[in-house]
Design a protein around this nucleic acid. Structure first.
Lengths: 236, 236
DNA sequence: AAACTCATTATACAAATGGTTAATCAAAGC
DNA sequence: GCTTTGATTAACCATTTGTATAATGAGTTT
């Protein structure tokens, strides 16, 4: 990461490339200062995602996060208030990005495709999108897993704020597939965790996969093989 | 946990129930002292399993482990040398217990049953045993997962010492099922992680499952439903 | 160019943590 | 009963960690 604004003595930034993204209108044209502020905040958030996802909330120190982002650790309080708030901001970022990149529940949205694609093909496409998301952003599952394997106030907050909604969409998705005969008529929560587990684990445990199997889940070909395997097993 | 030997002033134990397990022979009859030593060591190890599995290596402090075991934290050095050695002892315990409780690879061992049970039924039985193991000892997958989602010296050690062997057995198991037409002819590593993930996640994320779905994976009925779902999906 | 804002840094502090050492004290051996 | 052994405890240390506060200085405004 590292903001590394080609620092002059202290936090001075070279305003050469500062005027890059003037996409917005009216609302006060972004100063080099507000731009830099945004960059610093984003750098901290991204570093927090990485550190928290690999070491957990307790294991990841704010100083490590700041160092990885190339900023002073006091800026974490300045921008996010506390370690806890930073963690919540990271989780919020993850779920909002997921919502933006993936419409897990297009059973209704992509209804137009229903005519051309069979329900089975439709299920395949959704699952494929989900696996690709897991491959693209493995830190999402990693960070959430760190919190979900023990009960805590953070898990409670995440469950109420984000996980429950995602779970509801997954539940409807599974029930739809059951009605269509794609999935067997068994426990829905079990099916959800079977699908999620079989899609996620290969990427959350990528370090183990590399070391034990000598392949890299980040490789496109490897991911393609995983998608093929998952679809062959799940969608009968 | 808590050793809690009904302590008199200091580490004194009531020798009433001390002579409980005199099963062994010759090799110096277990003193009340050696018995207590074994109990203390076991208590520390069990507490380490719990704490490490829930908070990870960095997040779990030796003082918390000692407190949970009801002993002084200096005893961790006395019995295990260091936090790192304690962690390795915990991992060793996990894999040895797994080997004792589960013969994941009876494709050859239980060959006698091949005559009575079909290969498909045999696969079902193995998978069922594995799910039940995950349900019985969720801390195994939790603790290993904590280490496997980032590369470290500990992961390297665990991979070389235990995971590789388990992976080989799983690989042979999957290949056998492929030959029998139970599993599709796709990437073996992908299949392994699909199977493991669909079996484990429901129990490693039990706190999330309880909170989000209102069911407890530790319930026998819930586990039975999960086994049914897993077999319905995986064994065609 | 001077005054002002505020993003950034320096510094401090109490608590927690892994590790170490010496003291203690009950059990084992004589 | 007395000594020895060793499991347990107390006290200590250096480091890390989250948080807080004041100083600083570059960018903005007038």
């Amino acid at each position: 990461m590292n903001v590394k604004k080609t620092r002059t003595p202290r936090g001075k930034r070279d305003s050469t490339d500062a005027e890059a993204g003037t996409g917005d209108a009216q609302t006060t044209p972004p100063n080099s200062r507000t731009l830099q502020k945004e960059a610093t905040r984003a750098a901290i958030l991204q570093s927090a995602l990485l550190i928290f996802s690999e070491r957990g909330f307790d294991g990841g120190s704010t100083r490590d996060i700041a160092a990885h982002a190339g900023v002073h650790h006091a800026l974490i309080k300045y921008y996010f208030g506390s370690k806890d708030t930073l963690w919540r901001a990271a989780v919020t970022f993850l779920f909002e990005r997921q919502a933006a990149e993936m419409s897990f529940e297009p059973p209704a949205a992509a209804a137009t495709a229903k005519s051309r694609l069979s329900r089975r093909d439709h299920a395949r496409e959704i699952l494929r999108q989900y696996v690709l998301y897991c491959a693209r952003h493995p830190e999402h599952a990693r960070l959430m897993m760190q919190e979900s394997l023990r009960d805590s106030e953070r898990l409670q907050w995440a469950a109420d704020t984000f996980i429950s909604g995602t779970a509801s969409r997954a539940e409807r998705f599974v029930q739809m597939l059951q009605r269509e005969g794609v999935l067997p008529d068994v426990s829905v929560p079990a099916l959800v965790y079977i699908i999620v587990g079989s899609a996620q684990l290969f990427y959350t445990l990528a370090p183990e996969v590399r070391r034990v199997w000598g392949i890299d889940p980040a490789d496109e070909a490897v991911t393609a093989a995983h998608v093929e395997a998952l679809l062959a097993v799940l969608v009968r």
